[in-house]
Simulated assay, not measured.
Amino acid sequence: MAAAWHRLWPVLALGTALLLAGCDEIGLKSSLSPQPRPASLRVVPPTPVAPSAQSLDLARYYHKVQNDLLTRGLLRTDGGGPDTPYSADDLARNFEKIVFYNEYSSGDGLSPAQRLQSGQLSRWSGPVRIGTEFGASVPPDQRSRDQAQIDHYAGRLARITGHAIAPVRNGANFHVLVVGEDDRDFLRRRLQQVIPGIGPAELDLFSNLPRSYYCLVIAVSGAHNPNDYTRAVALIRTEHPDLVRLSCVHEELAQGLGLSNDSPYARPSIFNDDDEFALLTSHDELLLKMLYDPRLKQGMTADQARPLTTAIARELMGQQPQDPI
């Protein structure tokens, strides 16, 4: 478990037994089939309100956290450089650990599993429509800034993956909820609306999130394919200072696409609990390219995918495959 000032971003996948955390996937899959929302259901942005003392105290805490990390040379925004070399073999190994393996066991909340559990490749097959919503505690200037950054990042993810990913104002299936301590009622209501059937344990996790957990993302799979994501919800705390909040956006949206785990060997990467990098790196862009490469299929195991991922990693690094596929 990460220390209190470290990022710990689970993904809940509601759909086969899968549980990950620490920038990972936490899951409880039960073949949940989301019901469609009425087309007439519109989200009305709440009027901003003054933050409570509890929210202000949390904001001060997170500012201290960010300052501490920056003082130690962490939360880098350069995407990696000469001091962080990686090879095709590194890339393939990190992809396998981040996409296929699970540090946490189902049914144990956020408790680590006794050993890493191998799963199957999960990602979106349909278009990803990213919609951003704000709680009443989020001031107008922050709403504008966050909206612009999330929209820009959605475009970047589309270019990297070659998948249909776009920001939308209506009809979202990937909901980014920027909320604070004072928005718990709004958060619970929206979760129940966009993920019908969400269980009380998941609602409580979101509503009573310890301050050591910076952000969360739920990825929901369809009823007919437990490895096909059809809906997602990311929680971003408004109390975070700008860099940590943007770091949450980068991590959560990428995790919600299928890069669900962490690896201590991944570098330069945001999929690592060491907080060295705040924003998506060159290494992470290649992981996303690999994840949405059409040669890889949903439901593949690590063993099935390994010859392909090795070849794809070598191609992305400008090397020829060692063996024909």
Rank of each mutant, 00 (worst) to 15 (best):
L280W: 06
L259K: 09
L291T: 09
G79S: 07
E96G: 14
L28T: 12
E239I: 01
L18C: 05
D89L: 04
S105A: 14
H152G: 09
P307G: 04
Y213Q: 12
R306F: 09
S31T: 10
K29W: 01
P46V: 05
S40G: 13
L14E: 11
Q322N: 10
D273W: 00
A234H: 02
P127A: 15
R231S: 14
V44M: 09
G258W: 02
I130W: 04
G197I: 07
Q149H: 08
A3E: 13
D57K: 13
Q322R: 10
D89W: 00
L8C: 15
Y265Q: 15
N225H: 08
P46F: 06
C23N: 13
V220D: 02
S282P: 02
L257N: 05
L287Y: 10
T161G: 04
L296S: 10
N272Y: 03
M317K: 15
A148K: 12
I160Y: 01
G109L: 12
G79I: 00
L216C: 02
A113P: 03
M300E: 11
E25S: 15
R76V: 01
L91C: 09
R189V: 09
F186V: 01
P51E: 11
P45R: 09
L286Q: 14
S105M: 03
A302F: 07
P264G: 03
R306C: 02
L187R: 03
G256E: 03
I150M: 06
A136N: 01
Q192A: 08
R306W: 12
D146G: 00
R129T: 03
S212M: 02
V99M: 02
L19K: 10
A50W: 01
R143C: 14
A2P: 15
D284A: 15
H152R: 14
A164C: 04
E25A: 15
L235A: 04
L69F: 11
S106Q: 12
N261W: 09
Q193S: 12
G109D: 10
D262Y: 00
F206L: 11
I198Y: 13
L187H: 04
L8S: 15
S125V: 12
Q298F: 00
E202K: 05
D151F: 11
S282C: 02
E239N: 01
S30Q: 09
S144Y: 02
M1P: 15
R37W: 04
A266V: 07
L243Q: 08
I165G: 05
A21L: 06
R295M: 01
P241C: 13
L296R: 13
G22I: 06
I98F: 06
R37E: 14
R123T: 14
L187E: 13
D275Q: 07
A278W: 04
I160R: 02
V233R: 08
P112R: 13
R76G: 06
V44E: 13
L296F: 10
A136L: 05
E315N: 06
D204V: 09
G199S: 15
L177S: 02
S87E: 03
P226V: 01
V179Q: 10
I150A: 10
Y61C: 00
L257C: 10
G27E: 10
G199L: 04
P307C: 08
L287G: 04
S137D: 05
I218F: 03
